[in-house]
Simulated scan of single mutants.
Amino acid sequence: MGKKAGNFRKIIFSCTAILFLFLVAGCSVTDLGGEKKQELDFTVLEKEDIPEELQATIEEKKDEPMKLTYTDQGQMVLVRGYGKKESSGYSIEVKELYATENAVHIRTELKGPGEKEQVIEKSTWPYIAVKLDYHNRHVVFEE
C-alpha cells in the first residue's frame, strides 16, 4: 500500500504543479466592448490605392466573406468583404468606426442593388477598404 500511496501523492503533486503553472502563466481576457471613446476619421480607399500586398490577400480571399486588418507606416487598413455575389450593383456603407479603451470597432452594411439601378448579371466581389491612423488596439468587425 505504501507504494500506491506514494504514486497517488506524486500524481496529486503533479496536477497541483500544472494548475499552478497555468495560474502563473495566466490567460488574460480583454474586454473588447466598452464605451465609445472617440469617433475615428477614415478614408475609403480606391482599389488602386490599396497596398499591393493587401490587394493580393483580398484577391485570394474574395470568394468568402472576409475581415482583414493591415498595418504599415503608422496607418492601418481595415477590409470588410462580403464574398461572391451573382450580380453588380452592391455598395458598402461604413455605419460606425470608433475606438473604445481596448479596441477599434467598425460596422459596415452591404446594400443590394436598388430597384432603379441597372444590374449586370455577372459575378462581383463587393468589399470596402478604409484607411485610418494606426491604433494599438484589437479590431472588432461588428455585424
Rank of each mutant, 00 (worst) to 15 (best):
M76H: 00
L54Y: 02
K84I: 15
Q73I: 07
F141D: 02
G114E: 15
W125M: 08
E35T: 14
N136P: 00
A25H: 08
V119N: 04
V24M: 07
K36T: 10
V79L: 07
A5H: 05
G26D: 00
V77H: 02
K116E: 10
E96D: 11
V139R: 05
L32N: 00
E53S: 10
R9P: 06
G112K: 01
E53D: 11
D133C: 08
R137V: 01
E35M: 06
I12A: 09
G83A: 04
S91I: 10
L23G: 02
E60T: 14
T16E: 10
T69V: 09
T69D: 01
S28R: 08
R137F: 12
V44E: 05
D72K: 03
S123R: 06
I18C: 03
D72S: 06
E39W: 10
V139M: 11
L97C: 09
T69Y: 04
Q118E: 13
I11S: 06
E46G: 07
Q73Y: 05
A129Q: 01
E64S: 12
L40I: 10
A25T: 03
K62T: 10
K62S: 15
L132E: 03
L23D: 03
P126K: 04
S91M: 01
G33P: 05
P126F: 04
K122H: 09
L68K: 13
K10I: 05
Y134R: 02
F13R: 14
V29D: 07
H105N: 13
